[in-house]
Structures are given as C-alpha cells and as structure tokens.
Design a binder for these strands. Structure first.
Lengths: 249, 249
DNA sequence: TAGTGGTCTAGACCACATC
DNA sequence: ATGTGGTCTAGACCACTAA
C-alpha cells in the first residue's frame, strides 16, 4: 500500500482539473460515478474529493454536485507610485472605493466604531500601555454586495478625540486623507504580511470556502518614531492581488 | 442534526488549543481517548481532528500522537527604508543571507540555472514574446538547513548573456547588486502578493504540513517602462512575515 | 421521487513507534 | 507486544435540490 487509493484518485482528479479536462465552473462526477470509475468505496472517494476541497480546488453544496472553483481576483494597492512619484493625497474617495471602482465593480462598506482598551498586541504596535483607551474602526468591505475584506484600524484615543473618526459613518475621502487634512503627519508606513488559514469567524463573515487561506496585512503608520495608527486587513487569498509599487534608488 | 457531532468535537478541541489548555507542542488525546470522552465513533473523531489539521492547528505522525503546532516565524523584507531613506545598495551579502543572519539563524541556498523559452505568463511579465529565450535562476533557500523559501527569477537572455547570472553559483552580493554594479538601472519594483494553498510539488519541497498556505510574491523590476527581470517567491505562510517599509509623502 | 452530498457507525487490516 | 494513527469497506440514515 505504497500510494493510498484515495491519493491516486485525488491526483487523477487534480490532473484533470489542472489540464482543463474539468474546466472551472464545471460539475465533477458524482460520488457514485467516481466509485464505479475507480472501483473504490464511497468513503475513499470522499477522502479524495475532500483533499481537493481542502486546497480550494473544488466546492459544492449538498443536494447539488461539486464543481471546479474559479477564482474571482481583484487588485488592491498596498502602495502605489503615482505620476507625481509619491503616494496620492488628493483623491476624492478612499482607496478601497477607488480600487474597486477602477475595476468596474461596486464597492461598499459596513462600518462600526468602538472605544476599548488596548490589548497587548495593539498596545505594542501603537506604542501605548496595555489598557490605554483606543478607538477601533471595523469595516466589512464589499464588492458587488459580497463581503470581500475585513479591515480594522486602531487609533490612540487622544489622537482622534473630537474628530469624525469616532462616528460610525463613511468618510468619503478616506480616513488617511481626512486625518492628513486635519494636520496629522505620516512619514512612514510599515506593513507586515503573512498568510494563514482563517479563523471560524473570518470564514463565516467572508463566506470563505474551505481551503481558502487569508492574506493578513498589518500596517502601522508613523510620524517620525511615533505610531499614530495601526490596522489589520484580512482578505481571502483567492480574491485579491495586493500590489506594491516602489521607486528604486 | 443541527450541529454535526464532529464539528462539536472540533470546536471543543479548537477552544482548548486557543485557550492554551492544550499548549503548542503538547500531544493531544489519542483517538481512543477522544472516542470515549465525547462518546462518538472513531471516524467522527478523525473528521474532527482532520478539520484542525486542515487549518494547520495540529500535526502528527503515524505511530506517534498528534500535537499542537507551534509556528516558527522569520521576518524578511520586501522593501525597506534604510537610514539613507532609500533601498540599500551597498551591502556585502544578498538580502536573504542578510535577513536570516540578522535573526541569528543560518541561511543557505541551493541554486540551479536553466535556459528555457518564455511561457505566456513570463513573457507577458518580461514584455517579450512567448517562446523568447529566458534564463531562470531557481533557488531553494534554507534556514538552519531546512527548506524555507522557493525563489525563481527570470531574465531575458540578452540582458544577462556573458554574466555570472548564467552560472549556478552563489553571487555573494546578491543578483540585484551584482547587476546594478554591471550598470543595470532599476527605477521601479512592482510586487503582486497573494495567498493560496501549495501545489503538491511545493508541499513536498518545503515539507509543508497540511493546512499550511503559501504566500506568493511576484516581483517585476523595471528600468523606466522596460522590464528587466521578474521573480516568483513562494514562502510558507506560517514561517515568514514579509515586511514593507514605505516612506510617506 | 430520485439523485446528490453530509454524517455516523462498526469493523477490519496496515504501518509506524516504543517498550 | 501494545498503542498510535492511516486506509478502506459496507451500510445506514439525513438534508438538500430538482424534476
């Protein structure tokens, strides 16, 4: 039993998907068909198909069949060189709205704002003490009405008290430009990127198929050595392409 | 049957892991124990544990038990602001060696160089015709002897003919600086980042546990509007933190 | 009603690790 | 020899979808 049966079946199906014999969107053979075709029991077929589902190649719903998934990728910018050679600061809408609209899709977002105390992680990134009051703006950003991205931004309370940041409403020009217009200077942005499997909450909110990892972008903005805000953006790995454009020396 | 049994078991185990009751590195109860503890059949226990394995929370080996995984994270830089305010170009070693050494680990790499014709994807990114000759440097980069990152860089043949790029040897100062010293100018780097589950080859070479996504970094370097090289770097999502530091306007 | 996938069980045998 | 996980089967029943 060198190569398990279910792996042989999985590899064969995978090859058919990658070769295009089973095209994206197409329904794959039913479990009964696969049992007959490969001469194995139902659980073996299910183990094979589960493996493909676990890496995001197939999906399906009870009662209907399983089909080959086709990704729907949007591009969003983490940093962008404009004609001026520097980050844009004169736009009329926030970056999410701009990025999504530019690709002919309809952006949207649901915003909530909370006042809470800093956890260790947030305190460290904001350079404040654990337990200090911070403001968090949580956004569920949508494309064509579907949840697409989770975005949380944390501010030290004293830096945003009395501003519209505290109101759970859309800020048309975007938070970054809004604060810049109020006089906040940002000299450095530092992003930390990683990939992981989603938590159960993330999977639920983003309606993630099993086998879909998320891309996590932790961004902290600094004015000199002083942190002014930090954010965590969670996006499904198969639905975004995060772009960084950087001028070289 | 609102909530399946195996999900109840999985959620319970997950909670114990996240609360620390089952600590990283610790062996989780055996299948027999879990069967007795939750009063379910073996396959149900296995379905629950498989779910945790599929999201990278537990791993194990036949004959031994299953244990809670503990990530080993390294930081690597995608772009870094130096004291000079621009990308470093005077270092003595390549960036991988520098990043890994700085964290007290031992870097290494296995290099192979191939001459081949451009596929559609590579041709498009290098702005040449499909079928044009290109050179690819493939590197398996290691940390403390373990495969850690897969790096492929493609060059149009005419831009690197007669250089040491064609030799499958380490270039101490790194390819970027080597070419810069030969007079190649790079004015813009463009990175595209995404997360996905690994291919079977990637999982094998990087010794990935099931449930580990990869972070894919596609970088193209331009001299003006002209692409001079393009690379694909594949890293396990749980083993790296990719850092971008960007000066703001 | 028929066909699909979803859940669960009981049991068998194999492969690996440890004592 | 014993305990662990890995593979596989046969069979049962449930839930969802579509004709």
């Amino acid at each position: 039993m060198r190569e398990p049966e279910y792996r042989r079946v999985a590899a064969d199906l995978r090859a058919k998907i990658e070769s295009g014999e089973l095209a994206p969107g197409q329904v794959i053979p039913s479990e009964s068909d696969l049992m007959a075709q490969y001469g194995v029991g139902r659980n073996t077929v299910r183990a094979a198909v589960s493996e493909l589902a676990a890496v995001g190649l197939v999906a399906g719903r009870q009662g209907k069949g399983r089909y080959v998934r086709q990704p729907d990728v949007l591009r969003v910018w983490g940093a962008r060189v404009r004609d001026s050679g520097r980050e844009s600061d004169a736009g009329l809408v926030d970056k999410w709205t701009e990025d999504v609209s530019a690709q002919g899709r309809i952006p949207g977002q649901v915003i909530e704002v909370h006042l809470l105390v800093a956890t260790d992680e947030i305190a460290q990134r904001l350079q404040v003490s654990t337990g200090e009051p911070v403001v968090v703006r949580r956004r569920i950003q949508t494309v064509d009405g579907d949840p697409w991205r989770l975005s949380e931004t944390y501010f030290p309370l004293d830096l945003v008290a009395g501003t519209r940041i505290l109101e759970p409403v859309n800020i048309e020009e975007g938070v970054v430009r809004y604060l810049a217009n109020l006089g906040q200077r940002v000299t450095l942005n530092k992003d930390e990127l990683s990939a992981r499997m989603p938590t159960v909450d993330e999977a639920r909110i983003l309606a993630l198929a099993v086998g879909t990892p998320v891309l996590v972008q932790l961004r902290t903005a600094y004015d000199g050595a002083h942190a002014v805000r930090t954010s965590r953006v969670v996006t499904p790995g198969d639905r975004v392409r995060l772009i960084y454009e950087m001028k070289s020396s």
